[in-house]
Design a protein around this nucleic acid. Sequence first.
DNA 1: GGGCACATTTGACATATGTCAAATAAAAAC
DNA 2: GTTTTTATTTGACATATGTCAAATGTGCCC
Lengths: 195, 195
Amino acid sequence: MSPDTFNTSKEILSYKDKIIPMLKNLLETEMKEYIQLISLKKNDFLVREGEVCHYYYFVLEGILRNYYIKDGTEITTNFDFPNDIAANFTSLVLQQKSIGYIQAMTPCKIYRMKASDFDEIKAQNPLMQQIKEILVSGYVILLEERLYSMQFRTAAERYHFMLERYPHFLQQIPLTYIASYLGISLETLSRIRAK
Amino acid sequence: MSPDTFNTSKEILSYKDKIIPMLKNLLETEMKEYIQLISLKKNDFLVREGEVCHYYYFVLEGILRNYYIKDGTEITTNFDFPNDIAANFTSLVLQQKSIGYIQAMTPCKIYRMKASDFDEIKAQNPLMQQIKEILVSGYVILLEERLYSMQFRTAAERYHFMLERYPHFLQQIPLTYIASYLGISLETLSRIRAK
DNA sequence: GGGCACATTTGACATATGTCAAATAAAAAC
DNA sequence: GTTTTTATTTGACATATGTCAAATGTGCCC
C-alpha cells in the first residue's frame, strides 16, 4: 500500500474504527516476529515509576490505569481500554525514567513491541509511518481537548463531558479514579452525581 | 542526510537549539520556493474562528496569542514567540473549521508554508519527516505536562512553574492573558504575585 | 448468610478562587 | 506635560471545591 493511501484528516476522525484494526492485523501478520503477547493479573504493573519505558503496548483485553504519585497521593492521568495504545509517551520518547505507573485494573492481554524495533520498521515502511502519525495526531487533539477542558470548565461540566464522550468509563472504573482523572475530589464527584 | 542521523530522544530535549535552526535554514534554502514571508501589524489575525487552517507558520519576529471565545469570554490557550511553530493543530490536521483565533500581540514577521506542500515534501524527504516527528513529540510532552499541571496544581503552583519555565512570558505578556492561560482570574493572579 | 473489605454518599466546616466594584498605577495619545 | 486609556491592585463578599469524619451501601470470602 502506498503512503498516499490515506487522507490523514479523514482517518484521524475514525481511527478507532479503521486504523486500529489495520494495525492489529499488521501486528498479527507481517510484524508477528516483533511482538510478544503478555498477560497481566489484576494489579500487575506494565510500567513502574523510575523505569524507562522501552515498549509500545497494544491492549487486547482488560483495563489499565495510568497514574503517578504526588505528595503521597495517586493522580490518575489516563485509562487504557482494549484497542488503545498504552505507553508512557514522555519516558518512551525521551528515554527518561518514567514518573508514573501503568497498572492493570483487571486481568489484561497485551501485545508489546520494542520501541527500537518499531522505529526500524517505521523507517522501512511508509504505511507504519503513517499509522504512527495518525495515532500521534489523534493523541495531540485529545490532549488539547482535555487541557482546555481543565482550563475553563467547572467540575460538573467536565464530568458531563466525560460521560458523553466516554460513557464506558463510568461502568468500569471506580469513582475514586474518575474523580482523580477529572482533577476533583471523590466527594465533589459524588455530589455532582447526586443531582 | 540520512534518516538515521538523529537520535530522537536526545534531539527533543534540545530541539529549540538544534532542530529549529536547522528547519529555519532548510526553509530559507531548499524549501525557499514553498514559503512566503508575511508581516502582521499588532492585532492582525493569523487564523480566525470558522476558518480552516491551511498553513504551518514559523515565527521570525513578534509574539502571537492563541485564544478562543467561550460564553463571550476570551480563553487564552497559547503564546507563540520567535522560533515557535504556530498553527491550529486540530484545524490543520482534521481540516475542520478552527474554533479559535491566532492574533498578533506585536508586529510580526512569519514564514508560512501550505500544509499540503509540507506533506508532499515530507513524503520525499526523510529529514523533514524526522523534524516533524521531533516537533510533534515535543508538543505532546508539553501538552501532557500542562494538562497534569492543571489537574493537580494550585493556581500559585502553576504560576510559579510558568515563571520558572517561561520567564519571558511575564516580561512580554499582559497579566490578563497570563491569568487566562493559567486558568485563573486576573485578580487571583494579582494576589498570588503580591506575595 | 454473616462478617469483612471496599466503594460511595452525606454532613459540617475550611479554604481557594471567582466576581464585582473601586482605587491606583502605568502606558499611550495628544 | 497633561489627559485619556489601559493594566494592575485591592477590598468585600459569593461560590465552588476540598477536607475530615461518619454513615450507608455493595460485593466478596469463608
